[in-house]
């Protein structure tokens, strides 16, 4: 669906490969391009089938996922790990919705170019500037 993001210049691909190498095996990263790991107890919320970014859905019970009962509820893991790390307070902030223009791009690059902020929240690109990296379709209305 998001195949247009595959067309990236070589230097972004290098960052992309580096980030995938580090994050996919360790966090089951989806390369959403707006990493919020640092506020979710180092557990990726995009592993949730509903891709919830603000807490568990109503079906989270006994630490199990409602959609795939054999899997753990990611938000239950986030809760436990945040408590372990002493990061409970970070769970009180509302994470904004995903900016799908960044899907499939490396967060590291986006952070470097100011497309996301320190929390991993997407920053609206400036209209007058040249559309930076990857797909910028949809910036104009």
């Amino acid at each position: 669906m998001f195949f247009n993001v595959k067309a990236k210049p070589w230097y972004i691909r290098l960052v992309d490969i580096g980030e995938q190498f580090a994050k996919v095996p360790m966090f089951d990263c989806s390369m959403c391009g707006q990493c919020v790991l640092r506020s979710t107890g180092l557990t990726c919320p995009m592993r949730c089938p509903k891709q919830m970014r603000n807490g568990p859905c109503g079906g989270s019970m006994n630490g199990k996922c409602e959609v795939f009962p054999e899997r753990p509820c990611i938000w239950n893991l986030i809760w436990e790990r945040s408590a372990m790390l002493g990061w409970e307070e970070k769970l009180e902030n509302i994470n904004p919705p995903v900016d799908w223009r960044l899907w499939g791009t490396p967060s590291w690059w986006n952070l470097l170019t100011g497309r996301i902020d320190g929390k991993g929240h997407a920053v609206e690109p400036k209209k007058e500037s040249e559309p930076s990296q990857t797909n910028s379709g949809g910036t104009t209305t």
């Binding site: 603000n54 807490g55 568990p56 109503g58 079906g59 989270s60 019970m61 006994n62 630490g63 509820c73 938000w75 239950n76 809760w79 769970l91 009180e92 509302i94």
Partner: peptide
């Protein structure tokens, strides 16, 4: 809101959100 979900404090926090 779901009072029956686990962990309960997180469901309360979600209501707060």
């Amino acid at each position: 809101a779901n009072p029956f979900g686990d962990p309960m404090p997180f469901h309360v926090l979600k209501v707060a959100k």
